[in-house]
Simulated assay, not measured.
Amino acid sequence: MLEETGPEWMTEEVKTGTTIIAIEFNGGVVLGSDSRVSAGESVVNRVMNKLSPLHDKIYCALSGSAADAQTIAEMVNYQLDVHSIEIGEDPQVRSAATLVRNISYKYKEELSAHLIVAGWDRRAGGQVFATLNGLLTRQPFAVGGSGSFYVYGFVDAEYRKGMSKEECQQFVVNTLSLAMNRDGSSGGVAYIVTIDEHGTEEKVVLGNDLPTFFDQ
């Protein structure tokens, strides 16, 4: 007699599946992510916000194991708050990215997560940093997650240096929409965060409002 068990997804690691992206514009950054969370082949959450604040004007985009990515973000958020009090001013984006890189590398055997860090500070303006396996690089834009494999050609072709804030916001929405149409692990709604010296603006684009590339 077979032993009765619960649904298979209950024993699977919960992963964000994911498409995440961040891009610099003159004066700030735009981050974006889809919202689907899966365990095995099952979708367990359709509307998780994978853009996590690390400080007032610094965010990170999460991919990999949902629990691991959130743990790293919470650790960095706490350390940045302490660091900000110690220095008496807001932390730099590079400091946040360095903390993410250090924690990810130190616990690389235990944690499975990839974070993109982006934000604005008064010293260097808008910045995007990719962190992976001990690597820390500033880039004009970065993509990650399972959906990124479907959009590398698109972003390479569509990216232009010097795009405006509005063009970068549309670039992020278009990239997410394309990935969500192609990648079975990405989907739901699109979360968008725009950061500049004036503050942080959060936006949700519902699935029905995302552009489609398959009408023609």
Results as ranks from 00 to 15, higher is better:
D81F: 12
L135R: 15
S148T: 09
V29I: 07
N45C: 02
V37T: 09
V47M: 13
A124G: 12
Q70S: 14
L111C: 12
L80C: 07
T98W: 02
K108P: 02
A96T: 04
L54V: 14
S95T: 11
I58E: 08
G64S: 04
G88E: 09
V117R: 11
R138H: 11
D121R: 07
K57T: 03
G153K: 11
N49E: 07
V100N: 06
E89R: 15
Q70V: 01
I72S: 10
L99G: 00
A66Q: 08
T131A: 03
V43G: 05
L54G: 10
G153M: 01
A69N: 14
L135V: 09
R101Q: 14
S148R: 12
S95F: 00
S38D: 05
L54M: 15
S65K: 11
E74K: 14
P91K: 14
G144Y: 06
G64A: 03
L135P: 01
V100C: 03
V143R: 13
D90G: 07
G126N: 03
A97S: 03
L115Q: 10
A66F: 15
R46T: 01
R123I: 11
N133W: 12
R46N: 14
G40I: 10
G88W: 06
L51T: 15
Q79R: 15
V44Q: 00
E74I: 00
L51Y: 09
S63M: 13
Y105V: 07
N102D: 13
Y150H: 14
S35I: 01
M48K: 10
A130F: 07
H55L: 00
G126E: 06
H83W: 01
G27P: 02
Q139C: 04
G126P: 06
G125I: 01
Y107Q: 09
R36C: 07
F129K: 07
D121S: 09
G64V: 05
V43W: 12
S33G: 09
A69I: 01
G119D: 00
S33L: 15
